[in-house]
Design a protein around this nucleic acid. Structure first.
Lengths: 220, 220
DNA sequence: ACGCCAGTCAACACCCTGTCGAGTCCCGTC
DNA sequence: GACGGGACTCGACAGGGTGTTGACTGGCGT
């Protein structure tokens, strides 16, 4: 009776089998309740019971739709990362047009997407410490992004716009890591954080410096 | 009967009052057990009972020494950050001597300290999501480091070694955040991570690029 | 008219946390 | 040499969360 537990990393069927019918709106209700509740309190303070009540069902019934609270989060995270991927589009392929503008566009779009779903992003960051599935999903998403950035850096080096230096992959990891942590602090609002309206500028500045050793990289 | 609950951020008396006597070794035993267990499994999989048994006492007795499992972690974190501060020493004040060497020294010493206590650092990062006290302690520690870096960057700009750019504080936040996240990935070993022997080089490279726009900043 | 299956939930078994109250042991004091 | 108090200890409990089981319902195709 337990819903399909798929290997982490693929978007499909995180909830139940390929169902249709009335149960679908329950599933959506759970997801919506989760995102709403997460906007109000920390993920640890949202119980399965809260999710079930919010969706108008009992706790056991919740388990008909999702194997656990974390699975709900996993589904939500899937959607956010998909949205981010879509927002990023093919910016990286058009880098040479105007590197500074394109990099800014990339960072800005991620910023917008994550900012719009900050509750989900924050909750995932918190759960990542305790839940292996979330950790793996995040790791695989990050790996994709790191590879994309690595490839872009190598292309910029090949066309002579960026100087050689530390391995492109390591640089990509460092920069992605920085963004993740800085956004987390900015959105969470605890501890030292960059103001939300400045964060894209600051991140962009470090990216350009690290990749080009310059604030004004040359276009093609 | 509950041990002194002090405001987060001060190192003293996280355990009990200023006691001496046989209870002290129990307290140490709990701390040692915690660090040992944390080297084996995630913090969520270590229960108060495990800590108590490991220290040769019963669960209720544990609560005589610490108000919670997280309080143990807090004590451990205090020690690690103190050790890191000590290791960093006055490196920042001697920056102008040889900027590249000094920055490297700074990053390297943090790397050594965190690496030596990776279990504690990892556990704290995981708990930070759910525990407000750990979050506050970490935030205050980070704030100190951010301010130190900010001051150093401003000094380098003042002496003409580093160009002006984004606010020094924002830069300091971004760079510290990067280090934190990159070390976490490296020590945790999940997801895209920089190899442990390369991580100092990579971080240093980004720091120098972001601060000086150069790999070879000028000495005094 | 019947069987199946999506959907539902009361009740249960568990596990972990934190607290309470009833101790024991030792040590300084009268 | 008893007595009181503080350090220290733990059995037992209350509470709150999770995940599972088994019985029930209602629609729908045959």
């Amino acid at each position: 009776m337990t819903p399909a537990r798929t290997a982490a990393g693929n978007a499909i069927a995180r909830g139940r089998r390929g169902a249709r019918s009335a149960g679908d709106e329950r599933e959506s209700a759970i997801l919506a309740t989760a995102e709403r509740l997460l906007r109000q309190r920390a993920v640890a303070d949202v119980s399965v019971d809260d999710l079930a009540r919010g969706a108008g069902i009992s706790r056991p019934t919740f388990y008909f739709y999702f194997p656990s609270k974390d699975a709900v989060l996993l589904t939500l995270l899937d959607r956010v990362t998909e949205e981010a991927d879509a927002a990023a589009g093919d910016v990286l392929e058009r880098l040479a047009e105007d590197p500074r503008a394109r990099w800014r566009e990339l960072i800005d779009r991620f910023h917008e997407t994550f900012g719009a779903h900050r509750a989900v992003v924050l909750a995932c960051a918190q759960v990542r410490g305790t839940n292996a599935e979330v950790r793996r999903l995040w790791a695989s998403v990050l790996e994709r992004w790191v590879q994309a950035i690595e490839t872009a850096i190598e292309a910029e080096r090949r066309r002579g716009a960026a100087p050689d230096g530390v391995p492109a992959r390591d640089l990509a990891i460092a920069l992605n890591s920085m963004n993740e942590r800085v956004w987390y602090a900015t959105f969470a609002g605890d501890g030292p954080a960059v103001a939300e309206r400045d964060v894209v500028d600051v991140l962009l500045d470090v990216w350009l410096a690290a990749i080009y050793r310059s604030t004004a990289p040359p276009p093609a």
